[in-house]
Simulated scan of single mutants.
Amino acid sequence: MEQPHVSALQLKKKGLEDRIEQEMSRPAPDFAQIQLLKKRKLRIKEELAHI
């Protein structure tokens, strides 16, 4: 696949990792939001694995 597409997916994955970490560090994390972010991250990870 194209390198720009891979780079874009990697950037999205990193952004989701940062958002998950930020949410986890809050005094009262929103676990529903964390689950949603983790699912999005997993989809991107799976897409990267198939490239």
Rank of each mutant, 00 (worst) to 15 (best):
E2A: 02
H5F: 11
L37K: 04
I51N: 01
R43F: 08
M24Y: 09
R40H: 06
I44M: 02
E17M: 13
K45G: 01
H5L: 13
L48D: 00
L37Q: 02
Q22T: 14
Q33V: 10
E21Y: 08
A8V: 06
A32Q: 15
K39A: 15
H5I: 11
Q22V: 12
D30A: 06
I34S: 10
S7V: 13
H5V: 05
R19T: 00
K38D: 06
A32N: 14
D18W: 11
L16G: 07
L9W: 15
P4N: 13
P4D: 13
G15W: 03
Q3S: 04
D18R: 14
K14C: 03
K39T: 13
E47A: 11
L48S: 01
I34T: 08
P29C: 10
L36I: 03
D30C: 04
M1V: 05
A28W: 10
M24A: 14
K13V: 08
L36A: 09
K12R: 10
K12H: 07
R26L: 15
M24N: 12
E17H: 12
M1I: 01
H50F: 08
R43S: 07
L16R: 12
Q10V: 09
L37N: 03
A8N: 07
H5R: 10
I51K: 03
H50L: 12
L36K: 09
E23R: 10
P4C: 09
K45H: 08
L9T: 03
G15V: 01
S25P: 00
H5W: 06
L36V: 04
R26Y: 09
Q10P: 00
L42D: 02
H50I: 04
P27C: 13
E23Q: 09
V6W: 05
A28L: 14
I20N: 08
G15M: 03
V6E: 03
K38C: 05
G15I: 02
L36R: 05
K12T: 00
K14Y: 14
R40K: 14
K39L: 15
L48P: 01
K14E: 14
Q3N: 02
L42V: 01
E21Q: 08
I51R: 00
E46I: 02
E17I: 08
L48V: 05
E2V: 01
E23N: 06
R43E: 05
E23F: 09
